[in-house]
Amino acid sequence: MSVLTRRQRADQLDDPDVANSLTREAWRRIRQNPLAIVGGTIIVFFVLIAVFAPMLAPFNPRSNAWFDQIRPTSIPGPSRDHWFGLDEGGRDELSRLIFGARASLMIGVLSLGIGAVAGAFFGLVAGAFGGWVDSLIMRLTDILLAVPSLLLALSVAAVIGQSQTAIVVAVAVPNIPLFARMLRSSMLGERQKDYVTSATSVGVRRRSLVMRHVVPNSLAPMLVQASLALSTAIIDAAALSFLGLGSADPGVPEWGRMLANTTRLLNVAPHLAIFPGVAILITALGFNLFGEAVREALDPKLRR
């Protein structure tokens, strides 16, 4: 087998056009992974729905034109006019789901993005400077980790009021220490490696040592964590709006809240729980599958 790989290597070397950077190889592995194709398709599907919601939705999601059909004991389910039925306010469920994708995806992506960027910043500072800076940042993250995220979310909502911003902050903040720790620890691991020692002995300046050598090689676990945590962020965001932390305006469609509003109507209109629930489930699954593919592509142990 080693003879074969040696030959393949030699062949590759003879072809001047195919330089394979790690990034390119990872991308190639992602594209060949069925998990990534399924996950990616789901993600793209929901993103397209969110982007083109006004064109796709058959009705205005806030219009309660069909309120006269709502009875305390019966809410119309799927029909020819309303594919996913009506909700408890007499609005078209499908249109609300389509517009709800906007809020749900936005909150998930935004909160994770904020958490990851802020976490990466603190991790970078801790990992680059070490010493007391590192100790200080790590003790602060310990404190953040010790606060239950639900409690944090409730306090944030109490301070800035019920809004989507509250949910974004509440989902973002608990992510900060996770990302900070992850980047720091992988930077510490990379710093021990010979290529960093080598760059030091070459006389490379500290800034370029960190930014060109340590950080690029420390980002893989961050990327994996980010893509896997996206599904958690979307579920958490839905859970928080289920608990009533979202926008104070009940007309704004959002999957978590749509689910929350229907708990007491489960036996009357099960479709109102099923559709948003399935939407959350499939979206989270899509991000999870894709994240798993990213992990497989970047994991050095699985690399040929």
């Binding site: 790690l22 290529y195 020692t197 002995s201 070459v202 006389g203 690029p216 090689n217």
Partner: peptide, 24 residues
């Protein structure tokens, strides 16, 4: 020190760990 290090260079044991995998 940074400038003087040029005069002394090192060759490492592990040829896998001693090259930055992201640099050509």
């Amino acid at each position: 020190l940074r400038k003087a290090r040029r005069h002394v260079q090192m060759i490492f044991q592990d040829p896998y760990a001693s090259l930055n995998p992201r640099q050509n």
